[in-house]
Amino acid sequence: MISRVAGSCFWLHRYVERTENLARLVRVNRSFVLDVPLADHDRWLPLIIVCGERERFAELVGDAATVPDQAVEDYLVWDVNNPVSLVESVRWARENARTTREVISLEMWETLNDLWNYLKRGSGRRAYRADRDAFYKRVKDQADLFLGLAESTLLDDEPLAFMRLGMWLERAMQTARMLDVKHHMLGPARRGGESPVEVAQWSALLYSCGAAEAYAKRGPRSAAPQGVAIASFLLGEPLLPRSVLGCLDRAAATLTRLREEGESGLGGEAAAHLDALRARLRSRPLEEIVAGGIHAELTHLIDETSVVAGHVERAYFDPDVEAQRALLT
């Protein structure tokens, strides 16, 4: 397929995944802040940090610890100056869909376009004011519907593979970021067990990743404190399709297939990086990684996953003309 179009497929799913994650995250947080008494800076600031928007938010809106919750939510959902706001993610998802109309199915397009119209034509705004939980649910459902339609209406071929690759890498980074925001509650330095608030926070994190039921089924597998057990689960449970390792494994499988089907030997660097990351996560017991400074580990994971995405980009989406010419001679 055309390189640029492959790139649009990759980004299409990244943006939809981001939309889904954010809608879920905000929805969970809304209910969470009602349940537990939290210091102001623990209420909404973490979401701004997960989105990597701390500085811009401070500049455009104010101190997240002191502005009203409403301002944070508005920023996360509607602000067009926030490049990762819900409305911007949907806009860019749709822009990528617009440039891949000949690749995606009509149902996928209509689903995404419905979501866009919902946000842009008033009914979404009305729901946001009148029944916010339903608003987030609708956004999340529509995004999930889109991702499901990709799996059920497309040929299991290159375009879908690039979509999946984008989705897995994006999701790996999202889960890593969510974990990172809670990292300060972990570590050997802490003593005296976990407070009820902390337990509630860990539980909220599970819900934010849609992993609460999975965790309950799996059960804590060690005597570690609940925070460590949950962090380990979200970091390294290979069966969980939202854990960092689970996402990276699936990304690697997708990339392997792409490389096997291509004849040009492209994608080698991305694959090597990805394999190194996965090996590193498997090299030590998860509890040990978590307890031994998870912040540094997560920062490394996020940075390296970006590097993988960069290699994919250069290999497949934006090939140098001279390199392509070289393949001809």
Partner: peptide
């Protein structure tokens, strides 16, 4: 265009 022929850049080469 290479050698007066047109090519499209694809994920599997030109």
């Amino acid at each position: 265009v290479h050698d007066d022929r047109v090519f499209v850049k694809t994920t599997k080469g030109p």
